[in-house]
Amino acid sequence: MEAFLVSTGVVALGEMGDKTQLLAFLLAARFKRPLPIVLGVLTATLVNHTAAGALGAWIARALGPDILRWVISLGFLAMAGWMLIPDKVDEESAGEGMGRFGVFGTTVITFFLAEMGDKTQIATVALAARYDTLVPVVAGTTLGMMLADVPAVFLGDRIAKKVNMRLVHGISALIFAVLGVLTLLNVGKLF
C-alpha cells in the first residue's frame, strides 16, 4: 500500500505544471472534446508507466541492493532539483497528426512521446526500483497523472491561474529530496 500511496502523491504533485499537464491544457483548448483526451491520457500513461516500471524492477534485480540504493537515492535527489525547473510545451506540436489519428489517437501519441524521459516517467522507474512492486507503483503513478491531468482537461486555465506552481514544485522537490535521503539511509518504510 505504501508504494501505491507514495507513487500517487509524488506523481500527482510532480505533474503539476509539468509539460504533459500543459499538453492537457492545450489539447483541451484545441479540440474541446474532454472524454477522448482523458482516455488518451490514461492509455498513454498506462503503456508508458508500465514500461518504465518494468525497467525499474529490472534495474532493482540487476544492480543488487547496495548499488541500487545509491543509484535510486541520487536519482531522487536529482529529481528534487529538476522539479524546480519549470516545463514548457511546444503549442504547435500539440495538435500535429489530428487529421490522421483523431483526438484520442493524437492524445495517446503526443502524451506517450511527451512522457519519454519526463520527470514522471523517471520517477516511475525509480519508484518501481525502490519498492520492487510493479503493479502498485504503476497504478499509483497512473492515478497521480490522472489526478493532475483530468482537471486540466476539464477546467483548464481556471485552475492554472489559482494554483501557485512554484509552491507545488517546491513541495514536490522536498518530497523527492526526502525520498532520496531516506533511500540513502536505507530506511525501509516511510510510514
Rank of each mutant, 00 (worst) to 15 (best):
A3V: 02
A3Y: 00
F4G: 01
L5Q: 07
L5N: 01
V6N: 00
S7Y: 06
T8Q: 02
V10C: 06
V11Y: 03
A12T: 12
L13W: 05
E15I: 08
G17M: 01
D18S: 14
Q21N: 04
Q21R: 07
Q21E: 08
L22T: 00
A24L: 14
F25E: 00
L26F: 06
A29I: 09
R30Q: 11
F31V: 01
R33H: 05
R33K: 13
L35H: 07
P36S: 05
P36H: 08
P36C: 11
V38F: 10
T43Y: 06
A44H: 02
T45S: 11
T45N: 10
V47Y: 02
V47P: 02
H49N: 07
T50V: 03
A51F: 03
A52P: 03
A52S: 11
G53E: 15
G53F: 05
G53M: 04
A54S: 14
G56L: 15
G56S: 10
A57G: 06
W58Q: 05
W58T: 08
R61I: 03
R61T: 06
A62Q: 08
G64W: 00
P65L: 12
D66Q: 13
I67H: 03
L68M: 09
W70N: 12
W70E: 09
I72C: 10
S73F: 02
S73P: 00
L74P: 01
L74W: 03
G75F: 11
L77N: 09
L77F: 07
M79D: 03
A80Q: 13
W82V: 08
M83S: 15
M83A: 15
E91C: 07
E91A: 15
A94P: 14
E96D: 10
G97S: 02
M98T: 09
G99H: 12
G99Q: 14
G102V: 14
V103A: 04
F104K: 01
G105F: 13
G105D: 13
G105N: 09
T106Q: 01
V108E: 04
V108F: 11
L113K: 03
A114E: 00
G117D: 13
D118T: 14
D118K: 04
A123N: 05
A123Y: 06
V125I: 15
L127W: 08
Y131M: 15
T133N: 14
T133F: 09
L134A: 08
V135I: 15
V137T: 09
V138H: 03
A139Y: 07
A139G: 02
T142V: 01
G144D: 04
M145W: 00
M146P: 01
L147K: 06
A148K: 12
V150G: 07
P151V: 12
G156D: 14
G156C: 12
D157L: 01
I159L: 15
I159T: 03
V163D: 14
N164E: 06
L167F: 15
L167Y: 11
L167N: 04
L167M: 08
I171E: 08
I171T: 13
I171V: 15
S172I: 09
A173E: 04
F176T: 10
A177G: 08
V181K: 10
L185D: 05
N186S: 13
V187E: 03
V187G: 05
G188H: 13
L190P: 10
F191C: 03
